[in-house]
Structure formats: structure tokens, C-alpha cells
Design a protein around this nucleic acid. Structure first.
Lengths: 213, 213
DNA sequence: CATGATTGGATAGTGCCACTTTCCAACACT
DNA sequence: AGTGTTGGAAAGTGGCACTATCCAATCATG
């Protein structure tokens, strides 16, 4: 398959494909001659994954490159590769430090620590990327004056636990480890808008029940 | 309070505050003289809300303006004002239409319709902004070859339902309707990183249980 | 009261970043 | 032979969230 065909099948402009090649997101095709290269199905899948990471996951190109590198790195453990997106995606959201006032971040870190202990989660501490992201989010809530109820958090965490099990089950249904890794990254990113939309819909529904005539 | 004080207390640069004033996100202060204006607590809170929407919620300035307009619009019903963020936030993610192949969007729309019917949700149809967002997300999943299990979706939806109840309870604990509306918008946006982080952590945890050692 | 600092506001500029455009030499097709 | 296409490199574009500069009016201080 030539680059033009890749573009046609994926809907991604040729110039953008060249850009991804240059940035190291998409591996080069097998060179046929000085001016031609051959691309296969795996390039198409990788291209769709790139688009998912960047457009749906709003991931910066540099971050996507790291995630894809982890996906391709066979020297990593399966666990590390599966977690690539989880570890790379929560770009350190600038904590918006307020010069004065109490340090909400420190308080939030303690709450997160307590929550993880209570849940019995040990694989990722409060200083892992997703743990830091959670801490930052809780701190932001506190800074705006909305305390984060620990019980409510635990409830949501349990729900997340159950959906994580279901998703891991789905992952294990894939034949080879490479496909599992790719699916893990894709599902991590692509399910987020699904879950957020469901939450919004649930809000609207519940609000209608309570406030609509 | 002068603008400099607002900047100091919020940590937002004066130039940025001026930008928000210009863009109509932050109401002008009460004019004291030709060159001075007085700002109050409500400006501080609004400023924090703006930052939350833009930086945490990654909302474009224009969208934030719409959300805040709905928040301030007392002619709307409480239900409509509470839903402002839910309706405005899912900016129409370009469906990344692939020229060829089956129309996954249409299929996704049917699935979403069926899901809403099964859940008994009637307040927001598949063509409401959050419904469209859900449809687009499901279609993207399908396009990448990851079918979206209806049972799994329903499970997540039930979980979302329960957390929505808890959050509405929290909202109703606020004294006046204006505070409720503001809290609704803030919580809608600020809880998202919390929930996504929890999901990531749950993934890491479950993956560690299955694949570590 | 003189004078320098500060204020709110208008205008134009900056930096980042995901692409896009342009150009080119080497092919492939007819 | 001639026309179109290919992959690649380099420079350009557009959008957007700020940010720097100016300005005239006003405030604060000696």
C-alpha cells in the first residue's frame, strides 16, 4: 500500500501522515525504491491509534510518542506496557498555586493516600502519574471550596474497580500480547469520552427528576 | 478590592484578568472613578470558576462564555442552568468521518438510543449535546474495531446514575439557587479529572493483580 | 501642589503547537 | 519522451490563550 492509499483508507491527509512519520509516531514503510515505500495494515491501525490519542485523548504529540514507544517496547513488562497510557496521559496539570493560603495540595495528598490505603490499592501510589493527577484534581476542588467527600470518592473508586475488571477481561480476550497492549491504550483513551458523556447524561436525567415540573 | 488585589488573591496575572474582562467571562467591577473599579468576593469566585473551566475542563474561551451566560441567566429554569456545563462542554468533536466504509455513527446512534431506552432516561435524547458526544465516542470505538458492549455501557451508566444522585444531593445542600448553579458547573467540570484518575488507578491496580510477577 | 506611581482599558504582539504548503529529485506509467 | 506520482525536507500557516505596550486619568506622597 502506498502512502496515498493509507491516506485514503484512513481519511488522514497525506501531509499529516508525513508529519507523523517525521515526528516518529508512525513507523516508516518498507522502502521499495528511492521514492516509494510500502505500508501495511499495521500502519493503518497505528494511524488510527495516533488519531485517537491526539484528537480524542487530546494528547500532545510528544506524549503520544512516549506512549507509543512504551507500547512498542518489548523489553517492558506486560503490566508496564498496559499502563503506558495511564502513566503518560495525565500531563502534570499546573497546580495553579495560589501564593497565599493553606497548601491544599499537601492536604489532598494525604486524602489520596488514605483513600488508596482504604481501597487496598498498592500498585500505584499517590506519587505515580495518575496518583498525582488525582491529588491535583482533589486539591483544585478544595481550592474552589468544594470539599471532596472521602466516602463518595471510595464509592466512585469501587465503581471504577468493577469497570476496570470488565475492561481487563475484554483485553484478555485478545489473542496476542501486542494486540492487548494496543487495545489497552486505545480503550483507556477512547472510553473516557464515553464515561464522561454517560455522567453528563445521568446528571441531566437526575436533575430533570428533581427540578423539572 | 482593586484589580491588583484580585490578581494577588487568585494568582491570575492582571493581563489575564483584563483578557477575561474583555472576553466577557468576568463581569466588570463597579466603577469608582474613571480609572478605578471595585471588585468583590463574587469576582474572585467567578475567576476561579473560569480558571477551572478553561484549565481543568480545557474548555475554549468561547464555550466558557456560553456556560457562564447560562449560569447567570435567571430567565432559564433551574434545570437548564444546572445543565449548562453538561450541554455546552462536549464541543462537537469532529467525527473524523472516513470517506468509505459503513456509517458507524448511524449504528452508534441506534445503540445509544437503545441504551437510553433501556435505562429509562428520557431527559436528554441521543441528539442532545451529551447524547451526541456519547454517540461520537461510541462510533470512534467502533471505527477502531473495539465494539462497545451494551451491557458494559449499562453497567457504567448505572454507576454514573448513583454518583449523579450523590452529587445532586450535595448540590441541594447549598443554600441559594445561584450557589447551586455555580456548584453544579464547577463539580461537573472538576470531578471529571477525579473520576478519570480513579479509573486509571483502578486499571493499574487490576493490571498489576493479573500481570505482575 | 508637584510629581511619580498606579489604575483600568484599548491595541497589538507572542509563543505554542498541530498541522500544511512548497519544493525537489527520483522514479513509475504510457 | 513526457507526464504524473512518490517520499522526504524545510519553511509557512492558523488558531488560540494569553501577554506586552501604551495611554490618559487619578491616586498617593513629600
Amino acid at each position: 500500500m502506498r502512502m496515498a492509499q493509507v491516506s485514503e483508507h484512513s481519511g488522514v491527509p497525506i501531509a499529516t501522515i508525513k508529519f507523523y512519520l517525521r515526528e516518529g509516531l508512525l513507523p516508516r514503510g518498507r522502502r521499495i525504491s528511492t521514492t516509494q515505500a510500502e505500508y501495511g495494515e499495521e500502519h493503518l491501525r497505528r494511524l488510527r491509534l495516533i488519531r485517537a490519542l491526539i484528537q480524542v485523548g487530546r494528547m500532545p504529540v510528544a506524549t503520544a510518542r512516549e506512549v507509543l514507544a512504551a507500547v512498542d517496547d518489548e523489553s517492558l513488562s506486560q503490566h508496564q506496557r498496559l499502563g503506558a497510557a495511564a502513566w503518560a496521559l495525565p500531563g502534570p496539570v499546573p497546580p495553579e498555586q495560589d501564593g497565599s493560603g493553606p497548601d491544599e495540595t499537601e492536604q489532598a495528598r494525604r486524602e489520596v493516600s488514605a483513600l488508596l490505603a482504604r481501597l487496598g490499592w498498592q500498585a500505584a501510589g499517590p506519587d505515580s502519574p495518575p496518583g498525582q493527577a488525582l491529588t491535583a484534581a482533589v486539591a483544585t476542588l478544595a481550592r474552589l471550596g468544594y470539599p471532596c467527600d472521602a466516602d463518595h470518592l471510595a464509592l466512585c473508586a469501587r465503581a471504577a474497580e468493577r469497570t476496570a475488571e470488565a475492561e481487563l477481561d475484554l483485553l484478555e480476550s485478545f489473542p496476542d500480547r501486542a494486540a492487548q497492549v494496543e487495545a489497552s491504550v486505545a480503550l483507556t483513551v477512547l472510553y473516557e469520552p464515553v464515561l464522561l458523556s454517560l455522567r453528563r447524561l445521568a446528571h441531566v436525567e437526575e436533575s430533570a427528576r428533581r427540578f423539572e415540573d
